[in-house]
Design a protein around this nucleic acid. Structure first.
Length: 423
RNA sequence: CGGGCCGUAGCUCAGUCAGGUUAGAGCGCCGGGUUGUGGUCCCGGAGGUCGGGGGUUCAAAUCCCCUCGGUCCGCCCA
């Protein structure tokens, strides 16, 4: 036998019935954002690697986790590690009218070691609003993301919010913090010392006890915001409060992407005990369009990981109702003609229907009908063909069968299903 | 990239520590009991290069080495 292949390391197949939950999740997302005026954006799965490199060399995802390759034309490309940069690139390229409000569903690729809730290919839904610096857009995006989780039935989420200030604020604070840390290197956990000069903000977010103690009284970025940045931050908080979105300010919240300015936030699932409990995060990125070669354009958005959301949903026992399966199952023991024709007659009249194949026995076909989850079975045998009828059986109650004229099947079934729908 | 645990039937696992007859169970699947009727029950059946390679041995699922994969932690993130 030939070598059998399996999905590459860190990737997985999503099969029914699990995929039913994906469909349901995406449908909720599309509904929440569609009703808020966000349109779907589909951009390529790969980009010139420069699109991602401009996210900043300090970004771990860019520095060492990129899935890059050269194509036959010697172009250096990379599979998208995150969702925002390609959308901003598309914005620069097409110059749509602003604010440009879009949502997306996309796989993301990162070359790292898989573990709980972490894959080499994972999937994100996300939204971006580009072309306006209005803090009310920060509020809108955060509140919609919050409403999306609520619509899924997730209740254990917490929202951490921070402000990175204006680009100038961030830079000044970074220098100040690096200097502060530099004087206390010996007090930090060894593993955090390397970051003190290059990525001082990361040190603040360390979970190592020694470091946490050492930085307890470190200067906080929120204490040194410029007047404009402070006003922006306050407006965002007021908006969230007005809309009933609970949050907590966390001046130590640092997110992996270096391009954030002003608002940054992260939703974490309290129900998840694993290390990877962030189910979505985002921020404002007022300098990103320009660093990607476009005209300056402020923007704000977030990405949310589908795999993580589903893990959180499992932990909370949410998103359990999915609508797989068909309403009607056709059982034909006359050789298959009736099964073929009747099944398509139903389908073409808007009734979901399936059948069995391989001319199996009635008993076998009934077992398949049962497993299919169909509410009703239509039985066709020699007697029915001779009489020009089909036998209708209710698989839920299992009681009684009725004979229906072949010509009235569609109408009767439609009525029967509508009746059942009320229950 | 550093570390722990685990790979036996489609799935969940026993058997591995103390190597030894045709490698087991439950669930699922297929068939029969009911020559046209599912979900319960009964009977039967199919299905495994014991992740892969190498080594030790008269003999390896079992011991040793390598490798691939899974899983979890650090790190990082969704």
């Amino acid at each position: 036998m030939a070598e059998m292949f399996q999905a590459p390391k860190g990737t997985r197949d999503i099969l029914p019935p699990e995929s039913d939950r994906w469909q349901a999740l995406v449908a909720v997302f599309a509904d929440v954002f569609g009703r808020a005026g966000y349109g779907l954006v589909q951009s390529p799965m790969f980009e010139d690697i420069g699109v991602f490199q401009r996210l900043g060399e300090g970004t771990e995802v860019v520095r060492k986790e990129m899935y890059d390759f050269f194509d036959k034309g010697d172009r250096h490309l990379a599979l998208r590690p995150e969702g925002t940069a390609p959308v901003v690139r598309a914005f620069n390229q097409h110059r749509p009218t602003v604010p440009w409000k879009v949502w997306y569903l996309t796989p993301c690729f990162r070359y790292e070691e898989p573990q709980a809730g972490r894959f080499r290919q994972h999937h994100q839904v996300g939204a971006e609003a580009i072309g306006s610096a209005d803090p009310d857009l920060d509020v809108e995006v955060i509140a919609l993301q919050h409403d999306f989780y609520r619509a899924l039935g997730l209740n254990s989420l917490t929202l951490r919010l921070n402000s990175m200030g204006s680009p100038g604020d961030r830079q000044a604070y970074g220098g100040q913090l690096a200097a502060w840390l530099g004087e206390r290197l010996g007090q930090l956990d060894e593993a955090d010392r390397a970051n003190a000069a290059e990525h001082p903000l990361r040190v603040l977010d360390s979970k190592r006890e020694r470091t946490m103690a050492a930085v307890a009284d470190a200067p906080l970025i929120t204490d040194g915001l410029s007047a404009d940045a402070a006003a922006h931050f306050e407006r965002v908080q007021a908006g969230l409060e007005a809309l009933g979105v609970a949050y907590e300010i966390d001046p130590r919240l640092v997110r992996g992407l270096d391009y954030y300015t002003h608002s940054t936030w992260e939703f974490a699932a309290g129900a998840l005990t694993s290390a990877q409990n962030a189910v979505g995060g985002g921020g404002r990125y007022d300098g990103l369009a320009e660093s990607l070669g476009g005209k300056p354009a402020p923007g704000v958005g977030f990405g949310a990981g589908i795999e993580r959301i589903l893990l959180a949903a499992d932990a909370e026992d949410a998103l359990t109702e999915t609508s797989g399966g068909v309403d009607v199952f056709v059982v034909d023991v006359t050789g298959g003609d009736a099964g073929r024709d009747l099944t398509f007659e139903l389908r073409r009249n808007g009734i979901s229907a399936d059948r069995s194949f391989d001319a199996r026995s009635m008993k076998a076909q009934m077992k398949v009908a049962d497993r299919s989850g169909a509410r009703l079975a239509l039985l066709v045998g020699e007697d029915e063909v001779a009489a020009g009828t089909v036998t209708l059986r209710d698989l839920r109650s299992g009681e009684g069968q009725t004979s229906v004229s072949r010509s009235e099947v569609v109408a009767k079934l439609a009525a029967k299903l509508a009746e059942g729908g009320k229950l």
